[in-house]
Amino acid sequence: MAHLSPIVFTCATVAAAMTLLVARKWQPSGPGAARDVRGLLVLALAYSTGVGYLVSAAASDLLARKSTALMGKNLGGTIHPLSWLLMAPYHLGLRLKLGVQRLISAEPLYNRVLPGWYIGGWPWSAGELPSDSPSVLDCTCELPRTAHRHRYCCLPIWDTQVPTTPQLERGVAFAVAERALGKSVYVHCAHGHGRSALLLIACLLEAGQVSSWEEGLALLQSVRPKVKLNSRQRLALESWVQRRRGGLLQMQPLGHAAHVHSHAAGHGHGHGTAAGAGAGDAAVVAVATAVERPASAVHRSALSGGSSSGGGNSGGVLHLVAEAVGAGGGGAVGGGGGGGHSPLANGHGHGAVAAGTGMGSGASSLGVMADVTLTGGDGPGGKKLS
């Protein structure tokens, strides 16, 4: 898989050569209009050259993890108008490239890997998404969110590059939580070959669908042969798996940890049960999602004292952070356990964990787990996931 930075650098160099060629060789001797056209063409080529070199530097290994803001894409998937204006040569070139590839390629936009799991390229319209209205995990920084109302999580990543560890954990938490709610998940990048493959393999590992990242890669390639991880993506996935196995990442698959029911009514109420709720001192890691929140917000819930409607006696302490971004109505998250009570958003829980989701109107984005601290019993120790 070719890296984005040298590709864009080559295109910028070609534009630079064309700029010099037009400036030196085209010497119109006719009316002033011809000279004006020449001047505008030189200016457009020179500007495209500058944008190309800028993107090439931003997408390089040195800067890629810190420079995605250059594209102006927010967590709701919207690209800022200034980015469309200032980075127009790159945006137009990318759309042209995608359009031509779609016309000449026989590869489908997406493939179903397993029931409830899809991998694919960027959908031009909502109608191109799978018919079962999947939640969307977007791994691009250069392409906007398609006009759809599906539940959505954005991880801005440059093409051929890798997510940061917090991004990877957030994407996995979002996808696994959506599957626990019975939603299918569509993971996409520009083409459905690299970034999306890395994220989906991590999701399948966390969900217990595959036993190793190599098995996950083989599974993806069996249904979508052009899937390929470059060297940096393989290293990032291997590193994440090693940290996960080494106990640094203790995210428990929600399908095994909790069964979640939710209502939406401004302040939602959640009802959930954990496997073996109230039996023993085990604490359960939960992910709460908040949909259609009116503004960016972070909520923290601590299971530390008081009383609860739950009948169990877990004795564990759980700190839960849910991040919500977007516009629309309200949502709520609540958590409670046999030994504690959470006042967050008037949510009430029964058993070990409760999580509620609220839905409203307007364009939305989905908030997902930002960090989780898990402590057994009353001890001070804990493991942080981000």
Score class of each variant (00 low, 15 high):
S307E: 03
L220I: 05
P253V: 06
L235F: 11
F9K: 14
G30N: 13
G306Y: 02
S56N: 13
K73L: 09
L344Q: 15
V136H: 07
R179L: 00
A207P: 07
G99Y: 13
D132V: 00
A286Y: 12
S314R: 02
H319I: 12
G331E: 04
G356Q: 11
L75W: 10
E292D: 08
T357A: 08
L374T: 07
L54I: 07
S307N: 01
V37I: 10
G280I: 08
G381D: 14
V298R: 15
D378P: 07
A46K: 03
A126R: 01
G326N: 06
V42C: 10
G331S: 11
E323L: 01
G381T: 06
K25E: 11
A302S: 03
T19S: 06
L248D: 10
L96H: 09
E128C: 00
A258C: 04
K383A: 14
L20E: 09
H263G: 15
R102G: 14
A23T: 05
G192L: 00
K66D: 13
G382V: 13
W26H: 05
T164G: 03
Y186N: 01
A264E: 15
V136C: 15
S222Q: 09
V187P: 03
D371P: 03
G77Y: 04
A264V: 15
S386E: 12
S342T: 15
A57M: 05
R300A: 02
P253D: 06
G93F: 08
G377E: 03
L229A: 11
R179S: 00
V55M: 14
S125Q: 01
G72Q: 04
Y118E: 01
L143C: 08
A190H: 00
E292G: 13
H350R: 10
S364A: 06
S301H: 04
H269E: 14
G338T: 14
G330A: 08
K25Y: 11
G246S: 06
A297V: 04
V172M: 00
V42F: 12
E169T: 13
H148S: 10
V353H: 05
N230T: 12
S314W: 05
S184W: 04
S105L: 07
L385A: 07
E128W: 06
H348R: 13
S67Y: 02
V372S: 04
G76R: 11
